[in-house]
Nucleic acid binder design. Structure first.
Lengths: 141, 141
DNA sequence: CTTAACTTGAGACTCATTATCAATAAGGAT
DNA sequence: ATCCTTATTGATAATGAGTCTCAAGTTAAG
């Protein structure tokens, strides 16, 4: 955990940003859960714990964390974006139920490799990708 | 082309919707280009041609077209969604330059198959997917 | 041709996210 | 430790894509 705080400090330093208790709290809050939550949920969770941050600061902090690959932004097609931390989490993509909104995670290494090859083919330097499968889950069919 | 109009009529009938000249014009406008355009661009293109439609109607019509797989909605991560028709167009995914916004299309059948297998594995009935690679293109590196 | 029901368009509205800016806090220099 | 410069914060206004409203106009079934 201390390691993760160090990581935040490093990243802020690299960006020429200051280490503040708000940024620390936002980061800790995101780390505290493996759920996919939106900015408002993170904001309210902090508020309930008596920690005073503003929505603006939550958004601003998440931006930095996303830029440095510590948090993943998940656009689920409707409503606000969801976020999840990427610490000690192996890479995965998502399969999303269009009815109930359930999100499952999946990984197929073969797909990951094929993606790299596509990027090479088009002479792109690959930075990130979105791979989301949308369908109807067993319960909703 | 007449075929595509027929398709629109069929789809509208299936949805219990009426065939109107606005819906026809929106559909023809989308068909007229292979570009990835947003709703506003489509709206303005119609207006420039002297065709009177409202933004609301453009959005409403696109919704139906997307629902029936005649148009694909492309969320490019920033700004408005882009749309492209899917007539006589084989399936493809996108690789997008994060600097200049250039969009290239790619297909890897192997990935398509692997996706199907993932859906099966999670007992999802697969409806659609988003697969977008984000990176820096050759020119922007 | 009538009529009931659907569609349209202009603009109001929503809601996620971003910008503004005065007040506050951080942290390097002294 | 105390300034002092500069970044940050938070409350709120602003933005922008997309949706909703509803009166007026169309459609098409009978």
């Amino acid at each position: 955990m201390t390691n993760n705080l160090k990581k935040l400090k490093q990243v802020l330093a690299k960006e020429g940003l200051r280490f503040t208790c708000q940024r620390e709290e936002v980061w800790k809050e995101i780390l505290s859960s493996g759920e996919h939550r939106d900015a408002d949920e993170i904001y309210h969770s902090l508020r309930e714990k008596g920690i005073s941050v503003s929505r603006a600061t939550v958004y601003r902090t998440i931006d930095v964390l996303v830029k440095y690959n510590m948090v993943r932004k998940l656009d689920v097609g409707v409503g606000p974006s969801k976020f999840e931390h990427k610490i000690d989490i192996s890479h995965h993509d998502h399969i999303i139920c269009m009815k109930c909104g359930k999100i499952e995670e999946f990984v197929v290494n073969q797909i990951e490799n094929l993606q790299e090859r596509v990027a090479e083919q088009y002479s792109f330097k690959l930075v990130r990708h979105i791979h989301q499968l949308f369908g109807i889950c067993k319960d909703c069919q």
